[in-house]
């Protein structure tokens, strides 16, 4: 699904991501963990196309997407959420999902004018399902800015799903959540996998990472220091020293 080959990003002299190799297979949930400043978010931004690559290449379903602008990558099937929530606060919940329906299949199915200038009716069914999935149906006409924190997180996830992604990049989706909300998030992530969405998860909350990930990659100073199944990572001495803590 996704192949990072020697991916690097330098900010001046800082090597935020430095020669990263990572593969995410179809239907897999891969977690990327590491201490603050280890290059996790930069990696997501590189895959989503926020910054250009300094070196290396990114292949998505066999195609080099390194030069595509952000919106083209989304249309190709890569959606994301943000570490610090970025909703359209003055749009309603419904509108937040509506503007995000930009999947290629939607573009092909509906004509240009129907897509942009047509009414809400055509979009209703799909958005209703997203609202149900995110437990936001009762808030559909609320402005996104007026939602509670947990609701905003759910809306951001729903907005990413509105483009029917094949690969979903989740940048710290559990930040600031209590353990009940983390439990619900876990259920959502697992049910997305059931539907065939591949997920790259960036997270500090080990409770979530260990619960959902098939494979974990650990970053430190922009480089991958370990990769393996959750149990292997927990036992890895280098990872403990760099990140998980404990007296290894």
């Amino acid at each position: 699904m996704l192949d990072l080959k020697g991916v690097a990003r330098y900010f001046g002299g800082v090597r935020a991501v430095d020669g990263l190799e990572l593969t995410v297979g179809d239907g897999e949930i891969v977690a990327l963990i590491g201490p603050n400043g280890s290059g996790k978010s930069t990696t997501v931004n590189l895959i989503a196309g926020v910054f250009p690559l300094s070196a290396g290449a990114i292949y998505f379903r066999g195609e080099d997407i390194g030069g595509l602008p952000t919106h083209r990558r989304l249309q190709a099937g890569i959606a994301r959420t943000f570490q610090n929530i970025r909703l359209f606060g003055q749009l309603t919940v419904w509108q937040n999902l509506w503007v995000a329906q930009n999947a290629l299949e939607d573009r092909a199915r509906r004509g240009f004018f129907a897509r942009w200038l047509g009414g809400r009716a055509r979009a209703r069914e799909e958005i209703f399902q997203l609202l149900e999935f995110s437990a936001l149906a009762h808030k559909q006409d609320e402005l996104a800015a007026n939602l509670a924190f947990g609701e905003q997180r759910r809306l951001e996830l729903a907005r990413a799903l509105a483009s029917k992604p094949k690969l979903l990049l989740l940048d710290e989706p559990a930040a600031g959540m209590n353990s009940e909300e983390i439990g619900q998030l876990r259920e959502r992530i697992l049910s997305l996998r059931q539907r065939g969405v591949t997920i790259l998860l960036i997270e500090h909350v080990m409770e979530l990472v260990m619960g959902v990930a098939d494979r974990i990659a650990v970053l430190n100073f922009g480089q991958k220091i370990a990769e393996g199944a959750p149990a292997e990572i927990q036992a890895d001495a280098a990872v403990r020293r760099a990140y998980l803590g404990g007296e290894a």
């Binding site: 952000t70 989304l74 970025r86 359209f88 749009l91 509108q95 503007v99 942009w116």
Partner: peptide, 18 residues
């Protein structure tokens, strides 16, 4: 809605495919 989305947050607007 897309016009307003761009007005609010350009980065997020691009990230949802606008």
């Amino acid at each position: 809605a897309a016009l307003r989305a761009v007005g609010e947050d350009e980065l997020a607007a691009q990230a949802v495919g606008l």
